[in-house]
Computed example of a mutant assay.
Amino acid sequence: MEYLYESAPRSYEDFASGRVLHNARGTTSFPVRLASELAQRCFHILEQKGAEGPYTLYDPCCGGAYLLTVIGLLHGRRLGRIIGSDIQPDVLQIAGKNLSLLRKEGLEQRAEQIKSLYEQYGKPSHRDALQSAARLKELIAESAVEEAACFQLDITDPKGALDRARGTHIVMTDLPYGDLVSWGGGSEDPVGRFFEQIHPTLDPARSVVAVISDKGQKLKHDRFRRLQHMKIGKRQAAIFEPLGE
């Protein structure tokens, strides 16, 4: 994969899971460089469509909201709403904590927690985390994010209510890997159901969908046009635009 926006090497250690951002057990962290690259590709496509920000970003398989939080920290000035959903209620507690870091108050509260740990144990890792928190605070100084929230939903369930996701400009998600059990729902075609469910929430003239998955999943749907496709190690990523009725 050729990086168009994150082409210059740099450190992403401030975003390490468990450092300032909270770690959700059983979930994997998403590569920060790839997250930023995909977000900026989506911004560019929307701008070409004439859709100006701030944008609404939605991840329907958010897990601990690591992906959403990283994008919010790096590109908050271009985002107005960040929302996530997941079928697993336990990870949503972590998701809420991570999304709170997109607000000044939430990040300051997290810094106080880390400071308390450093004063109690004096570990270099806590000192480094405090420094990271200070740098992240600078990142959100110009943020346009007014809402960052998450809710429980099975994106493969046709009865699921997606009212909170209507008006979304960017859907970005790292699809569950492996067999059907990984999705947690009962759909025989979870990827197809994912596309079906998100389509009504999108305006074809003002939205884009970025999907990341393992290479074993077929990323296509009749109601979406694929604009870009990339291979990244064992992963693949594709960017789509929804088609009108």
Rank of each mutant, 00 (worst) to 15 (best):
R25W: 12
A65L: 00
D157T: 12
A144Q: 15
P158F: 11
I140W: 03
T56D: 06
K234A: 13
L68W: 01
M230T: 05
Y5F: 15
G216Y: 08
Q228D: 06
A39D: 05
N98S: 01
E6K: 10
H199E: 11
R10L: 13
Q152T: 10
D222A: 13
R166Q: 14
H169P: 05
A238K: 02
P242E: 09
D189W: 08
L92Q: 04
L130A: 09
G122L: 06
H22W: 10
F194A: 00
E52W: 09
I155M: 09
S17V: 13
D157S: 15
K159L: 14
L136Y: 05
I83L: 15
G26Q: 11
D86L: 08
Q113M: 10
P54T: 09
S182A: 15
S182Y: 10
I140A: 03
D222G: 06
G96E: 06
C150T: 11
R77P: 00
D179Y: 08
D174K: 03
D90K: 14
L101S: 01
P31Y: 05
A129L: 10
I45Y: 09
I94M: 04
A210R: 00
L4Y: 14
K215M: 07
G53D: 09
E142H: 12
S11H: 08
G80S: 06
Y121K: 08
L34K: 00
T69P: 01
G76K: 04
A141C: 10
R226G: 02
L175G: 01
G186K: 15
T201K: 07
E241H: 07
I87K: 07
Q88N: 13
L153M: 13
G167F: 14
G50S: 10
R206H: 15
R223Y: 07
A35P: 00
A141S: 14
L68V: 02
L117D: 04
V209N: 00
E6W: 08
V20N: 06
A210H: 03
Q40A: 05
Y55G: 05
L130K: 08
P158H: 10
S213C: 04
G72D: 01
E2L: 11
D154Q: 07
K234F: 04
S100Q: 12
G233N: 05
V32R: 02
D59T: 03
P124K: 11
C42R: 03
K215D: 02
S143M: 07
Q152M: 14
L99F: 05
D214G: 09
E241R: 12
A24W: 04
L4M: 13
M1C: 09
Y3F: 15
Q217I: 00
Q236L: 06
Q236S: 04
